[in-house]
Design a protein around this nucleic acid. Structure first.
Ligand SMILES: [Zn+2]
Ligand SMILES: [Zn+2]
Ligand SMILES: [Zn+2]
Ligand SMILES: [Zn+2]
Lengths: 388, 388
DNA sequence: GAAGAAGGTCACTAGGTCAA
DNA sequence: TTGACCTAGTGACCTTCTTC
């Protein structure tokens, strides 16, 4: 078949106009102009867009493909074939929409036993999302050390579950703030530990706050796994999210700390993936973070806990899906989020030993140099308990 | 902008045509619009369609053709005569729409209190799924060489789009069947090429058959990319699927062929992943395969093709999601499918060079040994054209 | 910056469904 | 068989780019 890619240069701009009386090359009615590469009428233009560009259904012609003239409009098969014959071409598309999906979303619940699908969040889901998003904004904007630029939280949380969020803010403010000004070498170790502790503590607050997780019911081991991996994964999401708010990730703070290069490499690849490929909204980010934080696929041994976490994942995924639908985004976006989470899990799985080596090493140096007058680092100590 | 600041309610869409209070020209009841060429009520519209376009039944009037007003509805004879009198006309018919394939996914009665919503596939989606599944069963069960055990296709395809599927079967049967009995060393090369060609040709048939893909509109380069990667990916899904039907994958057929070990390793890891972790049913498998086959994320350079493929992906994902919902499966299952596809893409991306090296090498040996009296291997040659 | 073309909207209607 | 109600394709008319 000839490619037909040699489309004639289209008439554009204030140039030769269409003569009155010129006919549609498809249906022989009055033409209105050049549409998608051929002289056609308005209906045929719309038809072509709908059928080819919006991916509508085709069907066989009843009359063996013999439709012509005005009657060609009644036969999708023949009309489309004629469109292509006269040179209408998908190369002229600028944007595609998916109407079939949009239409289904508009279905309203019927009064029958079996409800048809209605795509809005129910109050529980709304609340869930509000709390997550509120937390996320605070977590994202909070300085992880006083070198970091802070973002203004005011206003941003307005629509969210305010009280809960204020509660977060209070809890987070009690956590020791890492100090990046190194007076002596030992300060650097303090700093690293404090940063990790901060994130681990935030994770604790986050997980306790996720609606319906019933944190205290989970087994100690499960909690430890969640916090350990969450502490590796969530800060990357935070960093990507801050990057989207205009604060680029600071690679320098990891270099020369003794953390292996491939880990740093992997981290920043993920952050870039997040901010460039995904560039999610703030609610999407909050939900992605919640999915990462509650993932059961990291060696949770208790079957009960696994089930609890799976249910939460399901709840979050459902909220995310409906929200995306409301925003007219494609399911593919959800798929890309899931793929990202997969990568994130691979990262934390592969680098957990390295991180642990890194932290232990720092600790050993620390202990050797000083009789550790133990600073309470709730988050980190909690994680550390699980290690031999 | 300040157009006429007067109360112009910015009308969109067409003008309202019918005034409330207009009467049906046939029965004098409230009219609903122009139907088949006359202003009529809904019942008269339905009546006309049924009688003229569907049944053609007639029946003499008891009252000598004197029925009028509302009572005309009781007399087929008079009602039809009046319809024709006021100008209703069979020319207004369009094609019959696609008859929806018998709903095979029936609503499952809810016994629990949790189930609030249930979605069903629309006719287009039903048809799409039926064709895919029908193709898949044939593709899966077909022997790729005469050593392979075949599965009985009879019965399995009964509920699917039968004609389309028969068409597949015919197309597939014209492809050269690889012969695994090696008389001379050269036969082995023939065999390898034929196997690859078989799969590439199957991919071609598959892609042409996917509803709404409009294969011929895609650019040559796009087609080539799809077939190339599909030929690497789809056979793995097939193998996993056969494994679920009780036919274990045959690793031996790759060993000693010169294909590098890591590729074989990767392939069988994916097959195992598919059959053990995913264990999808046959609908799901067909949809997963279609997703893999139509993925735009493999260096499709044409923006239009990318959009078209994305659109199809969206359609398939939506069907998969609804189908999973009907089967009471969690969204997480969808996520795991997506994650699998991601792995599959990584595999094909990483090993495409190796496969190409492998095929070219075989070809070189082949050419060196014999003046290649070229056997037509449509599928493979198509792929090969894109390579330098 | 105006003409022309792409894309969006939505009332309208062909055709299907199903309980009565 | 009927007709209330639904689904989804249509096309008149509109807005939003893009090009000259
Ligand atoms: Zn036309
Ligand atoms: Zn036709
Ligand atoms: Zn009437
Ligand atoms: Zn009568």
């Amino acid at each position: 078949m000839s490619t037909g890619a040699t489309s004639t240069p289209r008439k554009r701009g204030p140039e030769k106009k269409i003569q009155p009386g010129e006919l549609c090359q498809v249906c022989n009615e009055q033409a209105t102009g050049f549409n998608y590469g051929a002289l056609t009428c308005n209906p045929c233009k719309s038809f072509f867009r709908r059928t080819v560009l919006e991916n509508n259904l085709t069907q066989k012609c009843d009359r063996g493909g013999a439709c012509y003239g005005k009657f060609i409009r009644r036969c999708i098969d023949c009309r489309l074939a004629k469109c292509e014959l006269v040179g209408m071409n998908a190369d002229y598309i600028r944007d595609l929409r998916i109407r079939s999906i949009r239409r289904r979303i508009q279905k309203i619940p019927t009064n029958g036993q079996l409800m048809k699908f209605s795509e809005t969040l129910d109050p529980f889901q709304e609340n869930f999302l509000a709390i997550l998003e509120g937390f996320w904004i605070i977590y994202r904007n909070k300085q992880a050390n006083i070198h970091e630029p802070s973002l203004d939280t005011t206003g941003a949380v307005q629509r969210t579950a305010y009280e809960v969020v204020v509660n977060f803010e209070n809890k987070l403010s009690t956590i020791k703030q890492p100090n990046p000004f190194f007076q002596i070498a030992l300060d650097r170790l303090h700093f690293v530990k404090d940063v990790i502790n901060l994130h681990a503590s935030m994770m604790l607050v986050f997980l306790e706050a996720i609606p319906s997780i019933r944190w205290h019911q989970l087994q100690e081991e499960t909690k430890r796994e969640l916090i350990t991996f969450g502490t590796m994964e969530i800060p990357l999401i935070r960093s990507g999210s801050r990057s989207l708010s205009g604060i680029p990730p600071n690679r320098g703070q990891f270099e020369g700390t003794g953390l292996r290069d491939w880990v740093i490499e992997h981290m920043f690849a993920i952050i870039e993936d997040f901010s460039i490929k995904l560039h999610p909204d703030s609610y999407e980010t909050a939900l992605i973070a919640a999915l990462a934080a509650t993932s059961p696929d990291r060696g949770i041994t208790s079957a009960v806990d696994y089930k609890i976490l799976s249910n939460i994942q399901e709840t979050i995924l459902e909220i995310l899906r409906i929200k995306l639908g409301i925003d007219r985004k494609q399911l593919k976006v959800l798929a890309s989020f899931v793929a990202f989470l997969q990568k994130l899990r691979e990262y934390s799985h592969n680098s957990s030993e390295e991180w642990w080596r890194f932290i232990s090493h720092k600790k050993k140096i620390f202990m050797a140099q000083q009789q550790e007058k133990e600073v309470v680092r709730t988050g980190m100590d909690f994680v550390a308990q699980g290690r031999t």
